[in-house]
Structure formats: C-alpha cells, structure tokens
C-alpha cells in the first residue's frame, strides 16, 4: 500500500488525507512518526503519554487536513507542530514533570541502525545549529520547546525579566532559522512540491 504513496510530496499526502485516504496517513506516519515520538518522549518522559500525544496529533491531522494551508507552513512543520501542541498540553498538566530537569534522557534508547540516514542527518544538523547559539539563548529555547514552559514561567524560573526571555527566544530562534530554514523555501513550495524523503 505504501508504495502507492512513497513518491508523493508531504503536501500531496495531506491533500490525500483530506480525502480520507488511510494509506496517505500511514505514509505520513512512516515519514514523521519517529521524530514525532522522540519529541513527545523527550517532553513527557513516559511511553504511554508520548504514544497518546502522537496518536492524538495524527488523528488531529486526519480530522483537520482541510485546514492545512500550504502557503502558511510546510507539511512536516504542520504535523510536528500538532505533536508539539499536544505534548505541551499534556506536559503542562503534569505538574510533577514540570519540575524535572532536562537531564536524564535515556541514552541509546533506540537502535540507531533502524534510523534512516535522513533522520540522522537532520539530527546532527539541528544539534550543530543549537550549539552555535549563546548558552542563554539555547537554554531559553530548549526549556520552552522541550520543557513546555511558558515565557512567564521561564522568566520566573530563570529569575530574569520577561522582556529578556522574549528577546532570547526571538534572537535564538531567528538565528536557528538562518541556519536551518532555506531562505526561499516559501517560494520553492509554490514552484514545485519536492518530496522530503
């Protein structure tokens, strides 16, 4: 079944999901299920909760595919944003997890042989980009994105004015964008629909 979809762009898959093609949803999961689960697990530290977050996110994609607007985001961004929203909702309810530091992520919890070359490449690229940020910017971004803290909570936790936190996140994320996001990717999307896999 997935052979029918493997050659399609991510955006085309969402268009098929909108038409209730289960195979397209499965293909989307095959492309982004692993980073989605890794993200959810990193945030929630719990297999059951991470599964819940990923499942609900993909079902949200299924139910809301008609709301996807290609000029507003790439399909991969859209899907991973759903996963992040869902995990943030869960992490903000789990007070005890909030207190967890970001250390203690199990090492080698995955057999990286199964990991695709593409995912490994992306991981190294994004980790390298993060390392180029000044410590304080990286800290603000990591606590916000992986920790699920709001900017106000971050200001509180780090003992800094809210304005400082906002500007660290803005400067840091803008820097990541320079390194990670193709400057003309918006244009590209309209000229053609490249497959990311």
């Amino acid at each position: 079944m997935r052979h029918d979809f493997a050659h399609l762009s991510d955006e085309a898959l969402i268009a098929l999901v909108e038409r209730a093609e289960e195979g397209a949803l499965a293909e989307l999961y095959d492309r982004f299920g692993r980073p989605a689960f890794s993200l959810a697990f990193r945030m929630l530290r719990d297999h059951a909760l991470a599964e819940d977050a990923v499942q609900e996110a993909f079902l949200t994609v299924w139910r809301n595919a008609s709301k996807f607007v290609p000029e507003r985001s790439k399909a991969s961004t859209w899907v991973l944003t759903m996963v992040h929203h869902r995990a943030v909702d869960l992490v903000r309810r789990e007070e005890r997890r909030r207190a967890d530091s970001l250390e203690g992520v199990p090492e080698g919890a995955d057999d990286s042989t199964e990991d695709t070359v593409w995912l490994r490449f992306e991981r190294e690229r994004v980790q390298a980009a993060l390392r180029t940020l000044p410590d304080q910017q990286r800290e603000a971004i990591e606590l916000a994105y992986y920790g699920g803290f709001t900017q106000a909570q971050l200001a509180d936790r780090l003992g800094e004015p809210l304005g400082t936190i906002k500007s660290r996140m803005f400067t840091g994320l803008s820097r990541l964008r320079e390194v990670l996001v193709q400057p003309n990717s918006e244009q590209e999307l309209w000229n053609k629909s490249p497959s990311t896999s």
Partner: peptide
C-alpha cells in the same frame, strides 16, 4: 519544528 529532529531517537 526542526527542533523535533534534534532529540535522542526513541522508537515508537
């Protein structure tokens, strides 16, 4: 969203 890719891989 790219930050999702930087996490330690955990297989679902």
């Amino acid at each position: 969203a790219m930050l999702a890719f930087a996490t330690e891989p955990v297989a679902p």
